[in-house]
Design a protein around this nucleic acid. Sequence first.
DNA 1: ACTTCCATTTTGTCGGACAATCCGACCAAA
DNA 2: TTTGGTCGGATTGTCCGACAAAATGGAAGT
Lengths: 249, 249
Amino acid sequence: MRELFAPLRTETAYQQVCELIEEKILGRALHPGDALPTETELARQFAVNRSTVREALRALESRGLVTRAPGSKRLRVARPAAAAVADGVSRALVLHQITFLQVWEAMMLLEPELAALAARRRSATQLAALEQTALALADEPALPAEEAVEHTVRFFSLLGEACGNHALEIAAEPLTRLLRPTLSRMIDEVPQARQRIAGAQRRLLAALGRRDAVQAREWMIKHIRDFRRGYELAGIALDARVETAAASR
Amino acid sequence: MRELFAPLRTETAYQQVCELIEEKILGRALHPGDALPTETELARQFAVNRSTVREALRALESRGLVTRAPGSKRLRVARPAAAAVADGVSRALVLHQITFLQVWEAMMLLEPELAALAARRRSATQLAALEQTALALADEPALPAEEAVEHTVRFFSLLGEACGNHALEIAAEPLTRLLRPTLSRMIDEVPQARQRIAGAQRRLLAALGRRDAVQAREWMIKHIRDFRRGYELAGIALDARVETAAASR
DNA sequence: ACTTCCATTTTGTCGGACAATCCGACCAAA
DNA sequence: TTTGGTCGGATTGTCCGACAAAATGGAAGT
């Protein structure tokens, strides 16, 4: 069954440069925060043109492996932030024509357990951050839909952080992100949505405060169920493709 | 609480080019499979230099939004393959110093439900593909560890496809990918590992064939538990950081 | 219809160039 | 000692032009 020869892949120079640097980063020869050599220096070391190095750097940048501190020139090694990774995943999901129903199903599976874990493991500061976000939503009943969505999404992100498992956090992040565009519509059309969300968050927080995993799970289930009901009330088709903010711009 | 000024962000030319093209893709103005204009043409339209366009293209390429067909020059619009996305996620997880235990916890949460869904939704061809992969592992008791790992990982990937939910598929894919390096060691050190894996796969397949979601879930739970036991037997520390293949090269 | 061959296009890489701006150091004033 | 100003060098972003290798498209031949 196995062929004599595998298709040989000739790598272009910028791909090699990219991979070599990536290996150094993943192999921890370069630590997050370290400054990369300058482009000219890299060009010298690899014995290629600076343009070639730049192309490699743009690829690495796009993977979140190197970033530049805001208002700085030099590139530094970074560990991809959850947000950056989530961007990539949600782009993919959009192009794969994910429906809201699929996102919902995945959230229904992940978030309750994630909430249960968070109940056990959350730190005091994480709880405080969650409370602050929830308050921002609950205190202002007339918040513009966009901002209400931001707070809702942020609540999920913080919960992800609090669950103490980066793998789960990063798996869950893209899902809430995909809710953003449609959630905004839903909140606009369903008057009671804000209160329902705020209410669920309050109960969830109470459970998290008591480190009550069972109740946290329960309330998250109800919370997620509510989303679906909200969508149905708003007349948003559940099998409609989710979009990104970028695409609707 | 809010500051008067937000940090202003000036976008460089290549970032703008990158974003503009990305928007067209995500907004479905460009469909997967479509050929992108040539670099010179893009440079003309954006009124920038070709080098600038190239940097943008490298970024898009790295995001999996455009790829080049093997042995072809022209870039085509693509939807990021699950594998490409998973690469990004697993890179991130490695740099976030994920432990095997966290990966295991996440898998324990996702995979059983994923198996249950697959039992309900798998197509005949998907089942056949799964069976083929399982056979490849079961038939050759003396397979090199590397290949046994490939088959094991592939089995999970196929199961992801079969679950009928791209969101879950893409969430689960990076996890199994992270098993690869250590799994290889485990299979080498624990003689009965191959049989345990093959056995679990066989039972799982039987359940999938009968569309028995409950049994599928059960066997998957046992399967995942087995992994942990295997690691313990092999003396691999559960809180050791997972690595990538690239990093260990 | 199927190959074969050639001219054209396109990409990958190179060299060099220049303005903008970031960095660090040095110095002056409060 | 801290704050603010100035200055030169280093680095990046962008441009221009060039060329070999490879892919593409089409014409020509069978």
